[in-house]
Design a protein around this nucleic acid. Structure first.
Lengths: 204, 204
DNA sequence: TCCCTGATGTGAACGATGTATACATCTTAG
DNA sequence: CTAAGATGTATACATCGTTCACATCAGGGA
């Protein structure tokens, strides 16, 4: 705590996490190097090794933080959805999170996830469970496991296709309409097939 | 053509592509270094630069090849699907391709795709168009753009969730049943909600 | 109070990587 | 046959992840 001590950082672990997160947002995954993190934290290149086994461990920690942020972001869209419309709002929030934090989202899902990061698997299990719960609340009579998997896959796929520029992401409204219509299509296939989802994006 | 000439390779461009593809399958994305490619092709470290501007360009070329392989793989599942069942078979082929070539699939979709690789955008546009075509053939009365986007997103998301170990991928049969039921759920939402998709995977 | 042990940060060093530059070698068009 | 362009080589540099020996600090037991 003494102000004269510039040797010890105080909370390098958190500082590294913050720096890594910033670098990810600024320069993408390529910019996230351990040395850059150390520089930004104002510390020697090897100091982070006292708190993270290797680069992979740091990335996993950032990803785990991302999972938690995603969870709160979804909860903000609607705390306890129980209708298809409310569930669609959560789905829109999911995709918009991905578009707002593309590099973070890719770190969370695109890189091969090592199963040794228990912090990471816990966070993803929490999200998976959350999705299952709200789907079950919306469709109490359905097969919650199967349906929630389908919903998650649909929304997850929409997020990635948007990230890859395969869909029209020009405005948040277009994205929201796209996601909403896709989710409703899943719940009301007949309506989708008969042309009710014409608000969707205009092609690839 | 003279056999004494070991100096010029003959077709380094193709050799690099093949080597890169092999390294990707063997060691994943991390193992795909330009120098390793050069070593495998039996050539100096900087020789590949005569054929690829940088590492990114090589990866894009591999990804483009992957798109074409995926297209033929889907066509083999069914050349011209026109029923929900046939379309589901194509969807199963999509996911199984991802599971069979995880690193390649990630290179195709998980890394930020630079729009300057026209070979790459052409290949993805071809796939997108292909999906739209077969969905339109299966549902001639629907909004082909909207519905094909939804189908693609669903299948794409299933592929990624399987790749990340979020779903049960223990046997090809389980995966096939999972994908089939999800696709059918999209086309017959009422049936899905009432529990007809019970063949799906047993949780996360 | 002293000091000593463990936690934390530093510095130099190694091998690997992407890439630029200058040079060598081959192929082929005129 | 030769000159020019295409293709491959050698060398070099900055950066990166990581290891190891060492320095510095904080806190508890004597």
């Amino acid at each position: 705590m003494s102000p004269s001590s510039t040797y010890h950082h105080g909370d390098l672990r958190a500082a590294c996490l913050r720096a890594a997160r910033e670098l990810l947002e600024e320069d993408g995954s390529a910019g996230l190097s351990l040395r850059a993190v150390a520089r930004r934290a104002g510390v020697s290149a090897t100091a982070p090794y006292r708190h993270y086994a290797d680069r992979e461990a740091l990335v996993s920690a950032v990803a785990a933080e991302g999972y938690r942020e995603l969870a709160t972001h979804l909860a903000q869209a609607h705390p306890a959805p129980s209708t298809p419309d409310e569930l669609a709002a959560v789905a829109v929030a999911y995709v918009q999170f991905a578009l707002k934090h593309p590099a973070l989202f890719r770190a969370m899902f695109a890189e091969p996830c090592d199963p040794t990061s228990e912090e990471r698997v816990a966070a993803t299990a929490a999200i998976s469970e959350y999705v299952r719960t709200i789907v079950a609340a919306t469709f109490p009579d359905g097969d919650a496991d199967a349906l929630s998997t389908t919903v998650w896959a649909l929304v997850h796929g929409l997020a990635f296709l948007h990230l890859d520029g395969k869909l029209d992401s020009s405005t948040p409204e277009i994205v929201a309409a796209q996601v909403t219509s896709a989710v409703h299509a899943l719940f009301h296939a007949a309506a989708a097939v008969s042309g009710t989802v014409a608000t969707a994006q205009p092609g690839v």
